[in-house]
Design a protein around this nucleic acid. Structure first.
Length: 490
RNA sequence: CGGGGUGUAGCGCAGUUGGCAGCGCGCCACGUUCGGGACGUGGAGGCCGAAGGUUCGAGUCCUUUCACCCCGACCA
């Protein structure tokens, strides 16, 4: 991979600053790795939310909300689940503070100790399944197809802006089904929704497939996921959909009477994506001039910049652009007129470029005289002078073109950095450069662990293939039923 | 929790053998500018991460502590 792209990783933080900042919490605060999402960044998340939410509704889901606090005992009911999350939970032990008798400030009131500690949800399976128990009596109550938009807290040892913050925003779908087949179908369907969303809205090509046992969600029978390639050659898990089997139904004793009146345990799924998607967006599309946002997610799709010299020309350009702005707004486009007089146009160009606005329209005296405008595309950095006539259609078309082109660029990049490799020696050499590697693996956790140990590469997923081509494991030479996708990951 | 690094103005940093707290960017005012990050003049902005110690005197030396960043382990 080019050195230039490596260096770009260092620039991520600069691009991030337009969207978020590290939370400036009180000194000595024990809370670390939280982020403040700025309005410009949050607008992107809102766009993602509304697009996802629409797709969830289309697939029959409804939104609900469950408590932030989970009784500690709930978490321990599912053995693997507790093992997976116990190490990273924030725990509420008291419910009151009082004045410090020895001086100033407040102390935790020892009298206010909770009988049972509460865990701040790291994910909501337990509290939701505890609730579902009461909702589900008969096969007629099924399926339950709920989604929740919420924040969760995971006390990770190491945090990373966007990708692994202590608190993050996400959506988590939790469904209950009468049959195994139906639950598996739901798991597949939802990972498909994520993959479509990534492609169509985020302009991000993704691999879809199943996790290996070692990478699986704690408590899941199978985890499906989407994986994207970042420009520094590392993979990023961008969404997961879990088939939970009857694990949670058994742990929380959720049974229903089937048509024959026989009690059966419910089949479950859960699926989620988080603000990590914003990190994916930044790392997948940004260039050395800053963010590049796909039009469907850009808080500002078109920025209008007047060019002038003196008050008279300013008036002329601005009033002209006001009219253009109204026309574009009428087309449903998100448009901003940057009529600030305290910065020059060149400054504005650069600033909006860093913010990733897909299209810029500049109008100066020359354009006013000629009946033209200057269009500048963020994705290609091309500029062209076009007639004002028919500008709405041209802008609408540009939005489509830019969305497509950003996807194509990301696709080409991934194609260029995806390799079929059969020699482990070559694998070890090439993994240093980043990218996805399609290799044969003997299917054992031991070999998987060895590869991770020696190369830091993990199996990102096992793709679902109609006609899998068998081969031999690149490490052990044992038979392999199909190629799996390796990469170094965030 | 291990290994390395950094804490000085909103941001980025300099600060010599201990001796008046500095620079660039940004911010405010005025003027000149304005088709790709303008310039001039003036101005505001600081408990030098925190606590303790040495000293006539500490941003600087000593001790303790806290936070942040990078690399591991952990993870979406």
């Amino acid at each position: 991979m080019a050195k230039e792209i490596r260096n770009r990783e260092e620039n991520y933080s600069e691009w991030y600053n337009n969207l978020v900042i590290k939370a400036d919490l009180a000194e000595n605060s024990a809370v670390r790795g939280c982020m403040v999402i700025k309005p410009y960044g949050y607008a992107i998340w809102e766009k993602m939310q509304s697009e996802l939410d629409r797709r969830f509704k289309e697939t029959g889901h409804v939104n609900a909300y469950f408590p932030l606090f989970i009784p500690k005992s709930f978490l321990s009911k599912e053995a693997e689940h507790v093992e997976g999350f116990a190490k990273e939970c924030a725990v509420v032990t008291h419910h009151r503070l009082k004045a410090n008798p020895d001086g100033k400030g407040l102390i935790v009131d020892p009298e206010a100790r909770l009988e049972e500690e509460l865990v701040v949800r790291p994910t909501s399976e337990t509290i939701i399944w505890n609730t579902y128990r009461n909702w589900i009596k008969s096969y007629r109550d099924l399926p339950i197809l709920c989604n929740q938009w919420a924040n969760v807290v995971r006390w990770e040892m190491r945090t990373r802006l966007f990708l692994r913050t202590t608190e993050f925003l996400w959506q988590e779908g939790h469904t209950a089904h009468a049959t195994k087949e139906e639950a598996i179908e739901e798991t597949r369907k939802m990972v498909g929704v994520y993959a479509d969303f990534a492609k169509e809205v985020m302009a991000l090509p993704v691999w879809v497939g199943a996790k290996t046992a070692s990478e699986r969600f704690a408590g899941a029978v199978e985890t499906l996921c989407i994986e994207a390639l970042m420009q520094d050659g590392k993979a990023l898990q961008a969404g997961t959909s879990h088939f939970l089997g009857q694990n949670f139904a058994k742990a929380f004793d959720v049974q229903f009477a089937n048509k024959e009146g026989v009690l059966e345990y419910v089949w479950a799924t859960s699926w989620g994506v988080s603000t990590r998607l914003m990190g994916a967006l930044v790392m997948a599309h940004s260039d050395n001039n800053g963010l590049v946002l796909p039009p469907l997610l850009a808080p500002v799709q078109v920025v209008l910049v007047p060019i002038y010299r003196g008050e008279e020309e300013r008036e002329a350009s601005c009033s002209h652009l006001e009219k253009l702005k109204d026309k574009l707004l009428a087309k449903g486009l998100r448009v901003t007129l940057d009529d600030r007089d305290n910065v020059r146009s060149g400054f504005k160009f650069t600033e909006w470029e860093v913010k990733g606005v897909p299209l810029r329209i500049a109008v100066g005296p020359r354009d006013l005289a000629n009946g033209t405008v200057e269009l500048a595309r963020r994705d290609t950095l091309d500029k062209e002078v076009v007639p004002l006539e028919g500008i709405e259609e041209r802008v609408e078309q540009a939005m489509k073109d830019i969305q497509e082109n950003i996807y194509k660029k990301a696709w080409d990049f991934r194609e260029k950095n995806t390799f079929e490799i059969d020699s482990y020696d070559l694998f070890r050499e090439r993994i240093e450069e980043g990218g996805f590697f399609l290799c044969h693996w003997d299917g054992t956790p031991e070999t998987e662990a060895k590869i991770k140990e020696e190369t830091k590469a993990t199996i990102r997923l096992i793709p679902e293939e109609e006609n899998p081509v068998p081969g031999q494991c690149m490490v052990t030479g044992k038979p392999s039923s199909q190629r799996v996708v390796f990469a170094r990951a965030y």
